[in-house]
């Protein structure tokens, strides 16, 4: 049922796109028709696939590092009220800085290679992962904590056996957001300076008026993001089901 709805809305999007091309009579280097883009996607599948793999690698590494850092930060903040007072405002303030603005400086520091893109992805997902997991850790149902206290539980065991498992659904929500944001971070990094990746390919195609290739690269990026999102959505549902026993 969900798949049918998804296909229907995708078909609607294609129809509107095609209609705009026909009605406005746009030349294909301004807005290529869906058919042209899909043909280009197929014809250049080797080229697009090669660049998509680079971006995927950046995204996955960025997600792995960002998730580990986010989880570690959330645990630290959950355990230490002092750290929460001290670092909480910094964490929120850091979100006021547009990540886009940091891309050039990251490239300056980390070079044109893989690491400036990974750093972008890490930066962009760090906050959603940290804040959603922290939220879960700080909102353990009071009854569980009372029970643990009456049982003379050790704080470390309470964290391990109750607070973390109870917060996993929140972490799942954070990871779901991260799966959508991480590709954006990687592509921004590639725009600023790269010789590989879908972001680089888009700029290259755009500069040579190969609009259909550019659109094909965008489609490939969308497809990658959607697959990542679905994977983490499934993970998030699994964690939530486990935490509620449903």
């Amino acid at each position: 049922m969900r798949l049918r709805h998804a296909l229907a809305s995708f078909a609607l999007l294609i129809a509107v796109w095609q209609a705009v091309v026909w009605l406005a009579g746009l030349p294909h280097f301004i807005l290529p028709s869906p058919l042209r883009v899909f043909t280009e996607l197929w014809d250049s599948r080797a080229l697009i696939g090669e660049h998509a793999l680079v971006t995927l690698g950046e995204v996955l590494l960025g997600m792995a590092i960002g998730t580990v850092l986010g989880i570690a930060t959330a645990l630290h903040l959950a355990l230490s009220p002092r750290a929460r007072q001290l670092l909480g405002p910094i964490l929120v303030f850091s979100q006021a800085i547009p990540v886009f603005a940091l891309a050039p400086v990251l490239t300056l520091w980390l070079g044109y290679g893989l690491w400036s893109k990974i750093a972008m992805a890490v930066l962009i997902i760090y906050f959603p992962v940290t804040s959603s997991f922290l939220d879960g850790l700080l909102n353990t149902p009071q009854g569980y904590l009372d029970l643990a206290r009456a049982m003379q539980a050790r704080p470390g065991q309470v964290l391990l056996r109750i607070r973390i498992p109870a917060a996993l659904p929140n972490l799942g929500t954070g990871l779901k957001l991260a799966a959508v944001y991480a590709p954006i971070g990687a592509v921004i990094g590639e725009w600023v300076g790269a010789s590989r990746g879908l972001g680089y390919l888009m700029l290259l195609a755009n500069g040579r008026a190969k609009t259909d290739l550019m659109f094909a690269a965008v489609l490939a990026l969308c497809a990658m993001s959607v697959v990542l999102y679905l994977l983490f959505d499934a993970l998030s549902r699994h964690l939530a089901a486990r935490a509620t026993g449903g």
């Binding site: 643990a148 049982m151 003379q152 539980a153 050790r154 470390g156 065991q157 309470v158 056996r161 109750i162």
Partner: peptide, 8 residues
């Protein structure tokens, strides 16, 4: 048996 677990 959660009590024993929580006490380590």
């Amino acid at each position: 048996a959660i009590g024993a677990r929580l006490r380590g």
